[in-house]
Nucleic acid binder design. Structure first.
Length: 202
DNA sequence: AAGGCGATTGCCT
DNA sequence: GGCAATCGCCTTT
């Protein structure tokens, strides 16, 4: 299992958001390997009023303007972190928010990080571990300290996974934004149980 | 210097 | 389904 190369990330966020579906988010913490299949993403771009990069470079958003293949983590609502994959060439402010993953390995550790007991074996507890951007950031213990991390050369990376056919990818509107709400820039694997919010239509 | 609010979650009704 | 939690960021005085 090895990191996807820089060239995967330097494409536009709309492309990378779709291509990330089915790949693995991986984090090594000592001997523990946390990993999960990315099942839901959202694309954000520089010309996009809903994007943190829309108003230009700030201390927080600087990493979004760097070359693709880095991690952008922000803190929101006074208590949650959200993890993004920076995309595009150097100088362009765009990224893909990872909204949900399906846990693969390190599930016990994720449960500890989430302060949840998963030993009951209840399906709902396994799902609630990582079915949202704040939840998966907590499960993978990702914070602002990790913002700027290089995903092509380090302990946090994206690895190749199952190829998802186009027919299984649903495009929907993004969650939790107050502007540019009409853009269908959220993508998820149809039918996957970890998707945070299913689209209205069928 | 101050105020509004957020790429969310979990609890309460 | 509604809403409080909680604080850093950005905009406005």
């Amino acid at each position: 299992m090895s990191p996807l190369p820089r060239s995967f990330f330097t494409r536009s966020s709309l492309i990378v958001a779709k291509e990330l579906l089915g790949t693995l988010l991986v984090r090594r913490i000592g001997r523990t390997l946390l990993s999960g299949i990315i099942v839901e993403t959202e694309a954000y771009r520089q010309d996009d009023p809903a994007s943190h990069s829309y108003r230009g470079i700030t201390d927080r958003t600087r990493v979004m303007f760097g070359i693709g293949g880095h991690l952008y983590v922000y803190f929101t609502y006074g208590m949650h972190h959200c993890a993004n994959v920076v995309t595009g060439p150097d100088g362009r402010g765009e990224a893909v928010l990872i909204r949900a993953v399906e846990p693969v390995s390190g599930i016990e550790r994720m449960a500890v990080n989430r302060a949840k007991d998963v030993k009951s074996g209840r399906r709902s507890e396994l799902i609630s571990l990582t079915n949202g951007p704040g939840k998966l950031a907590q499960a993978f213990a990702l914070t602002r300290e990790h913002s700027g991390a290089d995903l092509t050369d380090g302990s946090i990376f994206i690895a190749e996974g199952e190829r998802i056919p186009r027919k299984r990818i649903v495009a929907a509107t993004r969650i939790g934004i107050s502007v540019a709400q009409e853009q269908p820039w959220r993508f998820y694997i149809d039918g996957n149980e970890w998707v945070s919010k299913k689209s209205q239509h069928h």
